[in-house]
């Protein structure tokens, strides 16, 4: 059907691989993180559709934005970035992940350094936006590959702040 897509939630780290295997008028089959998933779909005239998956029904809709895809599945809302597949050899199984700004703001504090290792939930960077301080935390253990911003820098929604790599085993 298509190439597998790697989607990452904006503001998060985890990447999810999804491949649409088959789409017809009434069915969608996909492989999500290696698991085959089947769903019924019923399209509506406004561009949305009713999706029935695992005995639950969701009104789904979405749009392409310049740098992301925004969707809704019933009450769940999500914004994803398509992670570009790395061409060529992947060295030793390492894949890249990044921490992106979930909203526009100013970098207040950078709590990690390049080369350092972090565990799940460790604070990484503090962003100031809308009069609140938001601390972005590691979603899982990782290595800090590159810090892409400096304290005081103004960043846009979706800007890459830190590049991560999988932790050394």
């Amino acid at each position: 059907m298509g190439t597998p897509l790697k989607l990452k939630r904006v503001g998060g780290i985890a990447e999810r691989e999804i491949e649409i295997l088959e789409v017809s008028e009434s069915r969608v089959t996909a492989r999500i993180e290696g698991e085959q998933v089947a769903a019924q779909i019923e399209r509506l005239p406004d561009g949305s559709a009713m999706l029935e998956i695992e005995e639950r029904r969701y009104r789904i809709a979405g749009s392409k934005r310049p740098k992301s895809i925004v969707v809704a599945a019933g009450p769940t809302s999500a914004e994803y970035q398509i992670v570009e597949a790395r061409r060529g050899a992947r060295k030793g199984g390492l894949t890249s992940m990044s921490v992106d700004a979930p909203m526009p703001g100013v970098i207040l504090k950078i709590l990690v350094r390049e080369g350092g290792a972090v565990s799940a939930n460790d604070p990484l960077i503090v962003l100031e936006a809308m009069k609140t301080e938001t601390t972005l935390r590691a979603e899982s253990a990782a290595l800090i590959k590159r810090i892409c911003v400096v304290v005081g820098q103004r960043v846009d929604h979706g800007a890459t702040l830190i590049e991560l790599a999988e932790p050394l085993k």
């Binding site: 998933v37 561009g47 999706l51 998956i53 695992e54 789904i60 979405g62 749009s63 999500a78 994803y80």
Partner: peptide, 19 residues
């Protein structure tokens, strides 16, 4: 719910769900 959202995103990306 996450799976449903992912499917929605993948369908939008491949233009199979009305933008």
């Amino acid at each position: 719910s996450e799976k449903a959202a992912l499917i929605a995103a993948a369908l939008v990306a491949s233009r199979k769900l009305g933008d």
